[in-house]
Design a protein around this nucleic acid. Structure first.
Lengths: 194, 194
DNA sequence: ACAAACTAACTATCGATATAGTGAGATGGC
DNA sequence: GCCATCTCACTATATCGATAGTTAGTTTGT
């Protein structure tokens, strides 16, 4: 159900086509929520059917058209209701922790290799997150900038601060993962090198 | 696919019935991997069909029987192969961060309430995780104890240390969430109280 | 002039996951 | 003796999500 609200959140910034949305989801939105095309397009249709979005046909080139989705008042009301309601507790389901608990079933060399891959992944994530955070702080982030242009100074301040807050959480999480991975290297050395 | 390996991992400790497994999944295993009955029973059947598990009918009371699942050599080989292969990078999909980024759409009172709920959830998780970690360290954890009885001193040491390592990661993650939530309270106060 | 790359909007298929049940036998407390 | 609760093994239904396509028009570089 959260995909629906991720879509409304994104479209409060500016109207977008399914294609624009798909691109956003494979770039910055992916830090917060990942979704493939095969979920996005059907969900947009359902949301239009449910009256949360309306679409406007916009010409594209000579013959082509594209569909630009706009959030309706009903959509905004639905979003605000979701924003005001409590979240269901999240279920744990992270294969990295499952694997780590059973590292004694793998070769030390393989464990080190897997730790290196996880480390590379989280370092890249961290650098992407820090880049996005900086773009939010100086208000050059494109989706945020579009939204800010419609807000008062006070409202803009809130919008920016909460987004930076969310990214600070993601950055802290990435750093925690990296620290855990570093501990993993130390543990493998201790258990298999001495 | 990870459910399959979570099941083999659990059954390397001791043979279990589907019911035992279901109970384990709603208790300690849930820290690492959550799954409902409707996934567990069909997956056990598929795994038996694929030769990763065998089941033994065991009498239960006067008339009843129960099915005890044992890991086969093929199952263990499959598990070791998975343990030695790299993990696909994990996709971000956490509604708490999505929501936090748009807290400006909710009432401050509602934001505080949601932060309190998240805080209560993570504090409870943290205390469960710390309890389980302690039980691993002193080797009183039932599933671990069953497995240790089949291992040499050296092997047991590895099994315990890696499990403790996994829990240390989960504990660090819970603490990071709690620190982020505390920052959330401070931010709401700053933005709406002054 | 033409090809490569990009924009646009999907669909098909399959496995994963959630929610919510069913129904039968077993056991413990009073 | 019987009732509540636990053990056991499922099933039904629906949605979520991943992977991998398809089809068509547009823009850009050479």
């Amino acid at each position: 159900m959260s995909l629906r609200y991720a879509l409304i959140a994104l479209l409060t910034g500016r109207p977008m086509t399914g294609y624009d949305i798909s691109k956003s989801f494979s770039r910055s939105v992916a830090h917060v929520w990942h979704a493939p095309d095969s979920q996005i397009y059907p969900e947009l249709n359902r949301m239009e059917r449910d009256g949360l979005l309306t679409s406007v046909e916009v010409p594209w080139g000579k013959k082509g058209t594209k569909k630009e989705y706009h959030v309706t008042d009903a959509g905004l009301a639905d979003f605000r209701e979701w924003m005001g309601s409590p979240l269901a507790p999240q279920r744990q389901r992270d294969p990295a922790y499952l694997k780590a608990a059973y590292f004694d079933f793998a070769e030390p060399a393989s464990v080190r290799e897997q730790l290196r891959q996880q480390q590379a992944y989280w370092e890249e994530q961290l650098s992407l997150l820090e880049g996005t955070r900086a773009a939010l702080v100086d208000r050059t982030h494109p989706t945020l900038a579009a939204r800010l242009s419609k807000l008062t100074g006070r409202e803009a301040e809130l919008a920016v601060r909460y987004k930076v807050y969310a990214y600070d959480g993601l950055i802290a999480r990435a750093r925690t993962e990296l620290a855990w991975i570093a501990d993993g290297f130390a543990l493998v050395d201790e258990l298999h090198d001495s």
